[in-house]
Design a protein around this nucleic acid. Structure first.
Lengths: 251, 251
DNA sequence: TCACATTTGTCCGTATGTATC
DNA sequence: AGATACATACGGACAAATGTG
């Protein structure tokens, strides 16, 4: 029963590969290595640390799955410092949702509540840059709709941009994760929807997508004009409609 | 430029080790493999998948860092299915803190908003079983406090039980993740606090812990008596006080 | 207490696939 | 198209750790 978790020096605990990844992590935390910098190749790292290549590979795998680096194959490739922690956290939330077998009802209820909460924060922290990004998003979405194309990616991004405008990264992660789950569900229910230039999507799906864009435009207007209650009401209507759309797809 | 993302069979895209980990992941999602089950040894897996042992190792490393398995060395050891996604998320949150992607302020604001939202749902969906679990929790916490021991685990669990009482798994995961981050932070800031029977904890930390228990008791009473506004007010006071406690620990 | 078997951890050598120049 | 550089993958070997008899 002595489950003493030694939190002070988590290094040295498991093996060399963890120590190597911790060392590189520390360099990133201390600012010695910044996003965009290149790490030496595996062979080079193996020589510098005086360890085997497999050990380096597992250390790099840790860093990759922790969102600190990406690895590119081929010539002039190799490990690249890149900050993707937020995305990594979102991925794990997605896994957690899938493990718990979340129902559509639960997800839509939670989404509705959380996004309303986020919107409240947006109204208090909105900047011109946020407005610009949101306007750009709905413009791009409208353009696609007018070209008879789905605008699903843009529509999902609208909600992510809204979360960003709340100036709270926790909200960004949570909203982004829920959006990822929904996108996952939609792509399973109506295949080919997310792909660009899908020639088979000339059905009511485009109408729904266009409808969402109109809602986004109205919500954005209400936000800009500081009409808080109207924005909340529109958001609620929009999300309820989306949930209905998903339900009809399931049947 | 042919970046066609095939959402139906994302396998074969990156490499063999990702395909292996995806296969095992799928088995876990589908319930074929459940927490507590043992995976074959690395050599056995290598034979069954007809791949090298190094490939298996990297696949297992992915699963470990994604919170799906743990790996034990030695005789009768090996890969063990275990759901630790929430802990993994909290670890990444800590990394995000260190990378200054998330601040304590953001986290406490998000926690306050989310738990208030959850409490509202709890008031509408409370059952006798939830009440029983919550009462048992505060009773256990009080017992520890009266024995001059910290009740941090119980106090954190109180909030998780609250989330469960909302009957929404999304809330459970979000609240659980935030709680895990806070527990992780607290254990780093005030070492030895989480361990049972810590003889060095006879300081103001126990007072704070006891204070939290009192708040929990009052909140629970308000919930049972359907005093919604009072419960919300108490919860808000409680969480603000906790955030102050964390801030003072950081300075 | 002491081997013993099992399993992960680590290293080496080599070959292949892949992206860049 | 060819050369180069790099990750990816295979097989074999030994060391270290851990539970079991």
């Amino acid at each position: 029963m002595k489950t003493q978790e030694n939190l002070f020096s988590p290094i040295k605990s498991k093996g060399i590969f963890e120590e190597v990844s911790s060392n590189i992590k520390r360099l990133i935390f201390d600012g010695v290595l910044k996003p965009g910098d290149r790490l030496p190749s595996e062979i080079e790292l193996a020589n510098q640390f005086s360890v085997g290549r497999q050990t380096i590979r597992e250390a790099l795998r840790i860093l990759e799955l922790s969102g600190f680096i990406t690895v590119q194959k081929g010539g002039s490739g190799g490990p690249l410092i890149k900050d993707t922690i937020i995305n990594t956290i979102s991925d794990l939330f997605l896994d957690a949702f899938r493990m718990e077998k979340i129902s559509i009802e639960e997800l839509t209820i939670a989404r509705l509540e959380i996004e309303k909460m986020v919107l409240n924060h947006v109204m208090d922290n909105l900047t011109d840059l946020d407005i610009e990004a949101l306007e750009q998003n709905v413009a791009a979405a409208r353009e696609k709709i007018e070209g008879n194309m789905m605008a699903n990616e843009e529509n999902i991004e609208f909600h992510n941009l809204l979360a960003k405008a709340s100036k709270n990264h926790v909200f960004v992660i949570v909203v982004g994760s829920i959006a990822a789950v929904l996108r996952n569900l939609l792509s399973r229910l109506s295949p080919g929807v997310g792909t660009a230039g899908d020639p088979g999507g000339y059905d009511k799906s485009i109408l729904m997508s266009g409808n969402a864009v109109r809602y986004h435009e109205e919500i954005l207007s209400a936000i800009i004009e500081k009409r808080r209650d109207a924005a909340m009401e529109l958001l609620e209507q929009h999300l309820i409609e989306v949930s209905h759309r998903i339900k009809t797809l399931i049947d």
